[in-house]
């Protein structure tokens, strides 16, 4: 039995400890906001927070997450009102939308560690997240806006 805490909810699962967290989230628990994109930690679509760090769930064995705190896009905010979520909607970032949960989860770690990131900081933090539609420019703007919302508390 593996004990998990996902989005502040406890789970106890009888599952192969080598199973990637991604498939436990998607197939077992039913949280499908975390996406499968490459399976080899290249694209960032599967980023979740493990004790606050932006781990790639496709290569994170469930055993590593046992007893730790996992936050997925579904649990990033209570009312979908994280500054990043607000900024994403405000600036109409998405095209197909498939990569965006991963982008937001990566950006959330950046904003926690750097309240006022520069373009360069954003690139350093986000280079691991691929957007096939090419919304990068808007993602960058949205992160700046989210930082502003975060600073102004609105």
């Amino acid at each position: 039995m593996i004990k998990l805490n996902i989005n502040n909810k406890n789970y106890e699962l009888d599952i192969d400890p080598d199973t990637p967290l991604l498939w436990v989230l998607r197939d077992t628990i039913g949280l499908v906001g975390t996406k499968y994109g490459c399976g080899v930690a290249q694209c960032g679509a599967c980023v979740v927070h493990l004790n606050g760090e932006a781990v790639r769930s496709c290569v994170t064995k469930i055993s590593r997450a046992a007893g730790q705190n996992v936050i997925t896009i579904e649990g990033l905010s209570e009312n979908n009102d994280h500054p990043l979520q607000k900024a994403w909607v405000e600036l109409d970032v998405v095209q197909c939308g498939y990569c965006q949960a991963g982008q937001i989860m990566s950006a959330a770690v950046l904003l926690r560690e750097n309240k006022n990131p520069t373009d360069k900081d954003i690139e350093l933090a986000m280079e691991g997240n691929i957007c096939r539609c090419g919304t990068y420019l808007r993602i960058k703007k949205a992160i700046h806006l989210a930082a502003e919302i975060q600073r102004n508390g609105s």
Binding site: A41, V47, E53, A54, V55, R56, V59, T60, K61, R64, M105, S106, A107, V109, L110, E113, N114, D121, L124, A125, M126, E127, G128, N129
Partner: peptide, 11 residues
Amino acid sequence: VYAMKCSNCHQ
């Protein structure tokens, strides 16, 4: 750094 820490991918 940030969302690009080694251990995010390297288990």
